[in-house]
Protein backbone atom coordinates (compact mmCIF):
# COMPACT_ATOMS: atom_id res chain seq x y z
CA UNK A 1 0.00 0.00 0.00
CA UNK A 2 1.37 3.38 -0.88
CA UNK A 3 1.35 5.95 1.82
CA UNK A 4 0.86 9.57 0.97
CA UNK A 5 1.93 10.90 4.33
CA UNK A 6 5.51 11.49 5.26
CA UNK A 7 4.78 11.93 8.93
CA UNK A 8 1.70 11.19 11.01
CA UNK A 9 1.52 12.15 14.67
CA UNK A 10 -1.42 10.89 16.70
CA UNK A 11 -2.27 11.86 20.29
CA UNK A 12 1.35 12.56 21.09
CA UNK A 13 1.99 13.37 24.74
CA UNK A 14 5.49 13.91 26.12
CA UNK A 15 6.34 14.56 29.76
CA UNK A 16 9.52 15.51 31.56
CA UNK A 17 8.74 14.18 35.01
CA UNK A 18 6.04 16.52 36.29
CA UNK A 19 6.12 18.85 33.31
CA UNK A 20 3.91 18.04 30.38
CA UNK A 21 5.72 19.49 27.38
CA UNK A 22 3.31 18.23 24.72
CA UNK A 23 -0.29 17.15 25.07
CA UNK A 24 -2.38 15.31 22.49
CA UNK A 25 -0.65 16.62 19.40
CA UNK A 26 -2.17 15.47 16.12
CA UNK A 27 -1.09 16.27 12.59
CA UNK A 28 -0.05 14.72 9.31
CA UNK A 29 2.50 16.01 6.84
CA UNK A 30 2.49 15.30 3.14
CA UNK A 31 5.53 14.21 1.22
CA UNK A 32 7.79 16.65 -0.52
CA UNK A 33 6.62 19.84 1.19
CA UNK A 34 8.27 22.43 3.33
CA UNK A 35 6.68 22.79 6.75
CA UNK A 36 7.38 25.30 9.44
CA UNK A 37 6.80 25.00 13.17
CA UNK A 38 6.35 28.18 15.15
CA UNK A 39 5.42 28.80 18.75
CA UNK A 40 6.52 30.58 21.90
CA UNK A 41 9.62 29.69 23.92
CA UNK A 42 8.98 26.59 25.95
CA UNK A 43 6.06 25.71 23.71
CA UNK A 44 7.43 22.23 23.09
CA UNK A 45 8.82 22.62 19.57
CA UNK A 46 12.18 21.08 20.34
CA UNK A 47 10.49 18.35 22.34
CA UNK A 48 8.32 17.48 19.36
CA UNK A 49 11.28 17.40 17.01
CA UNK A 50 13.42 15.32 19.39
CA UNK A 51 10.62 12.81 19.78
CA UNK A 52 10.24 12.41 16.04
CA UNK A 53 13.95 11.91 15.33
CA UNK A 54 14.45 9.39 18.13
CA UNK A 55 16.21 11.35 20.88
CA UNK A 56 13.22 11.10 23.19
CA UNK A 57 11.96 7.53 23.43
CA UNK A 58 9.51 7.99 26.27
CA UNK A 59 6.22 9.20 24.84
CA UNK A 60 2.55 8.32 24.58
CA UNK A 61 0.74 8.25 21.30
CA UNK A 62 1.77 7.24 17.84
CA UNK A 63 4.34 8.48 15.36
CA UNK A 64 4.43 7.06 11.87
CA UNK A 65 7.10 7.99 9.36
CA UNK A 66 6.37 7.15 5.73
CA UNK A 67 3.60 4.88 6.90
CA UNK A 68 5.73 2.88 9.34
CA UNK A 69 6.05 2.91 13.12
CA UNK A 70 8.74 5.36 14.20
CA UNK A 71 11.07 2.77 15.70
CA UNK A 72 10.68 0.44 12.76
CA UNK A 73 11.50 3.26 10.35
CA UNK A 74 14.43 4.57 12.39
CA UNK A 75 15.88 1.08 12.60
CA UNK A 76 16.38 1.16 8.87
CA UNK A 77 16.77 4.80 7.94
CA UNK A 78 17.55 7.97 9.74
CA UNK A 79 15.77 11.25 9.82
CA UNK A 80 18.03 14.19 9.01
CA UNK A 81 18.32 16.27 12.17
CA UNK A 82 19.84 19.65 12.89
CA UNK A 83 19.79 20.38 16.65
CA UNK A 84 18.99 23.72 18.20
CA UNK A 85 22.05 25.90 18.94
CA UNK A 86 25.37 24.29 18.18
CA UNK A 87 26.95 24.97 21.55
CA UNK A 88 29.50 22.20 21.74
CA UNK A 89 32.03 22.38 24.49
CA UNK A 90 35.63 22.50 23.38
CA UNK A 91 36.19 19.17 21.71
CA UNK A 92 39.11 18.25 19.44
CA UNK A 93 37.15 17.08 16.42
CA UNK A 94 37.53 18.29 12.83
CA UNK A 95 34.66 19.60 10.74
CA UNK A 96 34.97 16.75 8.24
CA UNK A 97 34.69 14.21 11.07
CA UNK A 98 31.56 15.90 12.37
CA UNK A 99 29.96 15.61 8.93
CA UNK A 100 31.07 11.97 8.66
CA UNK A 101 29.04 11.24 11.80
CA UNK A 102 26.00 11.46 9.53
CA UNK A 103 27.33 8.41 7.64
CA UNK A 104 28.09 6.41 10.78
CA UNK A 105 25.45 3.81 10.03
CA UNK A 106 26.62 3.21 6.50
CA UNK A 107 30.24 2.53 7.31
CA UNK A 108 31.84 -0.79 8.07
CA UNK A 109 34.36 -0.28 10.87
CA UNK A 110 35.77 2.73 9.07
CA UNK A 111 34.84 5.43 6.61
CA UNK A 112 35.67 4.78 2.95
CA UNK A 113 36.94 7.26 0.39
CA UNK A 114 33.39 7.39 -0.96
CA UNK A 115 32.18 8.54 2.46
CA UNK A 116 34.77 11.30 2.52
CA UNK A 117 33.70 12.45 -0.94
CA UNK A 118 30.08 12.62 0.14
CA UNK A 119 31.03 14.54 3.28
CA UNK A 120 32.92 17.10 1.20
CA UNK A 121 29.96 17.38 -1.16
CA UNK A 122 27.64 18.04 1.77
CA UNK A 123 30.02 20.74 2.98
CA UNK A 124 29.99 22.28 -0.49
CA UNK A 125 26.21 22.44 -0.38
CA UNK A 126 26.38 24.67 2.67
CA UNK A 127 29.39 26.58 1.37
CA UNK A 128 31.80 25.30 4.00
CA UNK A 129 34.10 23.00 2.00
CA UNK A 130 37.12 25.18 2.74
CA UNK A 131 36.66 24.56 6.45
CA UNK A 132 36.82 20.76 6.40
CA UNK A 133 40.14 20.62 8.25
CA UNK A 134 39.25 23.14 10.95
CA UNK A 135 38.20 22.18 14.45
CA UNK A 136 34.49 22.54 15.12
CA UNK A 137 34.93 24.83 18.12
CA UNK A 138 37.14 27.16 16.13
CA UNK A 139 34.17 28.15 14.00
CA UNK A 140 31.65 30.90 14.60
CA UNK A 141 28.14 30.01 15.69
CA UNK A 142 26.65 30.49 12.24
CA UNK A 143 29.40 28.44 10.62
CA UNK A 144 28.82 25.63 13.10
CA UNK A 145 25.14 25.70 12.28
CA UNK A 146 25.98 25.18 8.63
CA UNK A 147 28.26 22.23 9.48
CA UNK A 148 25.36 20.62 11.32
CA UNK A 149 23.12 21.15 8.32
CA UNK A 150 25.77 19.40 6.21
CA UNK A 151 25.84 16.53 8.71
CA UNK A 152 22.08 16.16 8.43
CA UNK A 153 22.18 16.23 4.63
CA UNK A 154 25.10 13.90 4.04
CA UNK A 155 23.01 10.74 4.44
CA UNK A 156 20.38 11.97 1.93
CA UNK A 157 17.40 11.57 4.26
CA UNK A 158 13.82 11.51 2.96
CA UNK A 159 12.76 13.68 5.85
CA UNK A 160 14.84 16.54 7.17
CA UNK A 161 14.02 18.18 10.50
CA UNK A 162 15.78 21.32 11.64
CA UNK A 163 15.45 23.07 14.97
CA UNK A 164 15.96 26.80 14.44
CA UNK A 165 18.66 26.33 11.79
CA UNK A 166 18.78 29.97 10.77
CA UNK A 167 19.64 31.33 14.21
CA UNK A 168 23.03 32.96 13.93
CA UNK A 169 23.10 33.00 10.13
CA UNK A 170 23.84 36.36 8.52
CA UNK A 171 21.40 37.54 5.87
CA UNK A 172 23.51 36.28 2.95
CA UNK A 173 23.78 32.84 4.55
CA UNK A 174 20.08 32.90 5.28
CA UNK A 175 19.27 33.59 1.65
CA UNK A 176 21.66 30.80 0.70
CA UNK A 177 19.97 28.55 3.24
CA UNK A 178 16.52 29.13 1.80
CA UNK A 179 17.85 28.47 -1.71
CA UNK A 180 19.24 25.20 -0.36
CA UNK A 181 15.91 24.25 1.16
CA UNK A 182 14.13 25.06 -2.09
CA UNK A 183 16.55 22.77 -3.92
CA UNK A 184 15.96 20.01 -1.39
CA UNK A 185 12.24 20.35 -1.81
CA UNK A 186 12.59 20.09 -5.56
CA UNK A 187 14.59 16.92 -5.11
CA UNK A 188 11.57 15.46 -3.28
CA UNK A 189 12.72 15.82 0.30
CA UNK A 190 10.20 16.70 3.00
CA UNK A 191 11.51 19.46 5.22
CA UNK A 192 10.24 20.39 8.66
CA UNK A 193 11.78 23.41 10.29
CA UNK A 194 11.34 25.14 13.62
CA UNK A 195 11.77 28.88 13.50
CA UNK A 196 10.90 32.12 15.21
CA UNK A 197 11.47 33.91 11.95
CA UNK A 198 7.81 34.51 11.20
CA UNK A 199 8.63 36.79 8.31
CA UNK A 200 10.32 34.09 6.28
CA UNK A 201 7.59 31.61 7.02
CA UNK A 202 5.12 33.25 4.73
CA UNK A 203 7.51 33.40 1.82
CA UNK A 204 8.92 29.92 1.78
CA UNK A 205 6.85 27.36 3.57
CA UNK A 206 3.94 25.39 2.18
CA UNK A 207 2.28 25.08 5.55
CA UNK A 208 2.76 26.12 9.11
CA UNK A 209 2.21 24.35 12.43
CA UNK A 210 1.81 26.36 15.59
CA UNK A 211 2.78 24.49 18.74
CA UNK A 212 2.06 25.69 22.22
CA UNK A 213 1.92 22.54 24.34
CA UNK A 214 -0.51 21.22 21.78
CA UNK A 215 -1.11 21.93 18.13
CA UNK A 216 -2.79 25.29 18.01
CA UNK A 217 -3.22 25.76 14.29
CA UNK A 218 -2.24 23.88 11.19
CA UNK A 219 -2.62 26.27 8.31
CA UNK A 220 -1.68 25.53 4.76
CA UNK A 221 -0.98 29.17 4.11
CA UNK A 222 0.20 31.91 6.36
CA UNK A 223 -2.41 34.25 4.93
CA UNK A 224 -5.10 31.94 6.34
CA UNK A 225 -4.02 32.93 9.79
CA UNK A 226 -5.97 35.69 11.40
CA UNK A 227 -4.00 38.88 11.84
CA UNK A 228 -4.26 38.68 15.59
CA UNK A 229 -3.00 35.12 15.57
CA UNK A 230 0.70 35.67 16.19
CA UNK A 231 -0.05 38.27 18.78
CA UNK A 232 -2.19 35.78 20.64
CA UNK A 233 0.31 32.95 20.23
CA UNK A 234 3.32 34.88 21.38
CA UNK A 235 1.44 37.13 23.74
CA UNK A 236 2.60 40.28 21.98
CA UNK A 237 2.41 41.76 18.52
CA UNK A 238 4.67 40.46 15.80
CA UNK A 239 2.20 41.60 13.23
CA UNK A 240 4.67 43.94 11.66
CA UNK A 241 6.94 41.07 10.69
CA UNK A 242 4.10 39.16 9.08
CA UNK A 243 2.72 42.26 7.52
CA UNK A 244 6.00 43.04 5.86
CA UNK A 245 5.73 39.92 3.77
CA UNK A 246 2.18 40.30 2.69
CA UNK A 247 1.71 40.45 -1.01
Amino acid sequence: MKCEYCLEVKDLTVRYGEITALKNVNFSLEKGKFYTIVGPNGGGKSTLVKTIVGIIDDYDGQIRIFGRERDEYLQEKMVGYVPQIASFTKFPIKVIDVVLMGLFRERRFRYSREHYKRAIKALERVGMADFSGRLIHELSGGQRQRILIARALVSDPELLIMDEPTVGLDSASQAQFYELVKGLKESGMTVLMVTHDVGFVSEYSDAILCINKTLVVHASDVSELPQSFFAKLYGYGVKAAVHGHER
Binding site: V53, M78, F88, I93, M101, R105
Partner: peptide, 22 residues
Protein backbone atom coordinates in the same frame (compact mmCIF):
# COMPACT_ATOMS: atom_id res chain seq x y z
CA UNK B 1 40.17 0.35 17.17
CA UNK B 2 36.66 -0.98 16.63
CA UNK B 3 34.72 1.28 18.99
CA UNK B 4 36.67 4.52 19.21
CA UNK B 5 34.09 6.37 17.12
CA UNK B 6 31.26 5.18 19.36
CA UNK B 7 33.11 6.45 22.42
CA UNK B 8 34.16 9.72 20.83
CA UNK B 9 30.76 10.49 19.31
CA UNK B 10 28.84 9.75 22.48
CA UNK B 11 31.15 12.13 24.29
CA UNK B 12 30.86 14.83 21.66
CA UNK B 13 27.16 14.63 20.81
CA UNK B 14 25.16 11.99 22.65
CA UNK B 15 21.84 13.10 21.18
CA UNK B 16 23.06 12.47 17.67
CA UNK B 17 24.01 8.92 18.59
CA UNK B 18 20.37 8.44 19.53
CA UNK B 19 19.31 9.83 16.18
CA UNK B 20 21.69 7.30 14.61
CA UNK B 21 20.12 4.61 16.82
CA UNK B 22 23.66 3.52 17.66
Amino acid sequence: IVFKDHLIYMTFDEDFMKVLRA
